[in-house]
Design a protein around this nucleic acid. Structure first.
Lengths: 247, 247
DNA sequence: GTAAAATTGTGATGCTCCGCACATCTTTAT
DNA sequence: ATAAAGATGTGCGGAGCATCACAATTTTAC
C-alpha cells in the first residue's frame, strides 16, 4: 500500500496530521518507550482508516515497511500454487505485522498477505526509517526482539498443532488460542472472535464443512454460538474442559 | 543444560578455555561484528562438543540462554500430549536456536527440544548476558532482528506447506528446502541431508511409511538415494522439475 | 564376523476427512 | 420489502493417508 493507492481507493483515508503520542502508546512495542524516542517516530508514521475486507499488503508485493494495528483486527494469509489459503496468524490491536521484512534485502517480498477482519486504524512505518530507529534506540530494539520472540514461539506451537492433531482437537485448541487473543475484558464469557466459520477453517488448516460439524457439537453443548459473522465463546470453562480431556 | 549436567554426562566436554574469535565468526549473527564487540562476547561463551543423539535442551526446561551451532546439525522438535513428535526446524552450522527466549519472562520455557543430528560443537550464551550485549550493541541487535525475521518467514512458509499440501508435494518441497540448507559446496549434486527416513517424516508432518513410499518413486527416478542414515540428493535439477510440475 | 538392534519397504485394511450436493439460514443491496 | 448474494448445516461417497504386519535390509555392538 502506498500514497497513490490511497488516492485511487476512496476508503483509504490518510491521516497524516493526526499523530498523537497516545496513538503509538497503544502499540505494544512502543508502550514503554521514552517520550523523547517516541516523538521521533511519531513524525514518521502514516495512519490509515480501513474497512472490513480491505487488503493492506499482499505476499507478492515488495516489502516497504512494517504495520501496526491500532484498532480492529487483521488476518495474515498465505496461498499455495493451487490458490488454497491458510491464515497463518490473526493480529489484534497492539500487534505488529510484516515485521519479518526488517533488515532483509531490498527486493524481499512481504511474508504474507494482510486483510482487515474488522474495520480499524492501521499504522505504517517505513522499513528503512524503522531500521534507523531500532539502530539508534536499544530500548526499541529490545522490544522488537521480544515481540518477535513471542511470534516465533506462537508459530512453533501452531505448526505442531496443525501437523499432529486431528480436526476436533485443532478446532478446540484454535478456539482457545483465539479466544485468549480476543478476550478484551476481564470476564471470561461472550468472547467474540471476528471470523466466519469459513475463515476459521483456514486458520485450523481444514475445510469449512469439517469445522461446521465440530461447531454443531459445541453449539449443542452451549460452548459456542455464531452471531452476525462472529464466533462467540459462551462457556470458557466448558471449552477448557474439552482441552484437558483425553480422546 | 548446565555445568552440573556436564559433570554427570561424560561426553559433554566443556571447553571454557578455548575461545577463539574465529569460533564466533562462524556464527551468522556475529560474522560482521566489530573485533571489539566480539571480544566482550567471547569471554562469556561456553562451548560443548556433542555427539549424535545428544539432547541439548528440552521444551519443558526453563530457558537459560541461547545456543549457536558451530559445527554439526541440530533438530528442533515439539511434542503433543500423545507423545507424537514434529521437527519444527533443522539447524545447520552458523545458525542460532532458542533465540525465542530473549527478553521473555524468567520462568519461560524453551520453545522446543533440541537434539544433535550430527556430532559437532555447540556454543552457549547466557540469556541475560546476551540481552546486555544486544542492548549495548546496536549492530548485534540488528543482526539478531534480521536473523529472527528469516526464521519467522521460513516458519510461515512451512506452516503453509504442512497445512495445505499433500504428502507427495510436502515431501518434495521439504527435500528442496533441506537440500538448500545442507548444500555446503557450490556443486548441486550429492547433497547430504543428515536425517533418517523416520526423522524426515516428522519434518514433513506425516508417517515414515508414507515418506518411504514417495522415496521409492524418487529412488526409481534416481533423484535421491539413502546412504548410511542420510538422504542424498543425486539429481537436483530433477527434483526442481518435480516442484514446478502441476499435479 | 556374527548376532542383535535398528531402520526401511511394501502390502492389506480401515478410518478420517475432503469434496460435492443441496437445502436452509443470514446478510447485503436496491 | 424483496431479491440477490453469501454463509452455514448435513448427508453421502470416495480419496488419501495412518495403522498394522512382517519381511528385507542396514547399522551397531561385542
Amino acid at each position: 500500500m502506498n500514497r497513490s493507492d490511497c488516492m485511487e481507493n476512496p476508503h483509504l483515508l490518510v491521516y497524516q496530521e493526526v499523530k498523537h503520542e497516545n496513538l503509538l502508546r497503544k502499540i505494544s512495542i512502543f508502550k514503554h518507550l521514552s517520550h523523547k524516542s517516541l516523538q521521533v517516530i511519531e513524525k514518521r508514521i502514516q495512519t490509515f482508516e480501513l474497512k472490513k475486507g480491505d487488503q493492506i499488503i499482499s505476499e507478492d508485493e515488495v516489502a516497504r515497511g512494517v504495520y501496526f494495528v491500532h484498532s480492529g483486527a487483521v488476518k495474515l494469509t498465505k496461498e499455495d500454487e493451487n490458490g488454497n489459503e491458510i491464515i497463518v496468524c490473526v493480529k489484534q490491536k497492539g500487534d505488529a505485522f510484516a515485521e519479518a521484512c526488517l533488515f532483509t534485502q531490498k527486493t524481499e517480498r512481504y511474508p504474507a498477505t494482510a486483510t482487515m477482519l474488522q474495520e480499524g486504524k492501521i499504522i505504517f512505518l517505513d522499513k528503512l526509517e524503522l531500521e534507523q530507529d531500532l539502530y539508534a534506540n536499544p530500548e526499541l530494539a529490545m522490544q522488537m526482539i521480544s515481540y518477535m520472540s513471542d511470534a516465533l514461539r506462537e508459530m512453533t506451537s501452531q505448526l505442531r498443532d496443525v501437523a499432529l492433531l486431528d480436526v476436533y482437537a485443532k478446532t478446540v485448541k484454535t478456539l482457545e488460542r483465539l479466544g485468549n487473543k480476543f478476550n478484551t475484558g476481564q470476564n471470561r464469557w461472550n468472547i467474540e472472535i471476528p471470523l466466519t466459520v469459513q475463515e476459521f477453517a483456514t486458520v485450523v488448516g481444514t475445510t469449512r464443512e469439517s469445522v461446521s460439524r465440530v461447531f454443531s457439537k459445541l453449539k449443542k453443548e452451549s460452548i459456542i454460538d455464531l452471531k452476525s459473522r462472529k464466533i462467540v465463546i459462551l462457556d470458557w470453562c466448558g471449552l477448557c474442559t474439552l482441552l484437558n480431556r483425553e480422546y
